[in-house]
């Protein structure tokens, strides 16, 4: 039989009824149930919300700005913090230097350009820098060499 012939086939298996029913009153309540659901805003996905996006953008911008301006911010550090930072830099310089006495002597005749040695963000004068150096310790260290 060709598929076309099916159209004219007797399409009756004895019934078109179904063996199951819808619960009583179901169709009366359905429109209200569905209407209520159409009025509810769909669950918001937090990362799609403008508040989250603006927040994230602000955070990233602030992080970038902080990273760029971080060295400058140390200028705002307290004098104590600044001195500690300078001491570390000076000690590092002197320890890597092979002739601390010569260094001290050289400094006495031709003052060290501390501005060159110290990182640019360390706001300290050459005078203050020398005040942080314990010359006797340097000389003792040199004598041990």
């Amino acid at each position: 039989m060709s598929p076309k012939a099916v159209v004219n086939e007797n399409q009756n298996f004895g019934t078109k009824a179904l063996p199951f029913e819808a619960p009583y009153g179901y169709f009366e309540n359905l429109p209200n149930k569905v209407w209520a659901k159409t009025q509810v805003e769909p669950a918001k996905i937090f990362w799609k919300q403008p508040t989250f996006r603006y927040g994230l953008a602000s955070f990233l911008l602030l992080s970038l700005a902080w990273w760029i301006w971080k060295p400058v911010s140390s200028l705002d550090a307290t004098q104590e913090e600044l001195n500690a930072l300078a001491t570390v830099e000076i000690a590092d310089y002197l320890l890597t230097h092979s002739d601390p006495q010569g260094m001290v002597l050289m400094a006495q005749t031709a003052p060290v350009n501390w501005e060159e040695i110290l990182p640019s963000h360390v706001a300290i004068s050459a005078e203050d820098a020398w005040s942080l150096v314990d010359e006797s310790e340097i000389i003792a260290a040199w004598e041990e060499l």
Partner: peptide, 21 residues
């Protein structure tokens, strides 16, 4: 809302039985 009620009134049974089957 009237459009919605009309839509439901006319198609809810047909659609329900279609899906239920």
């Amino acid at each position: 809302e009237r459009a919605f009620r009309l839509l439901m009134k006319h198609y809810q049974k047909r659609l329900y039985w279609h899906v239920r089957k």
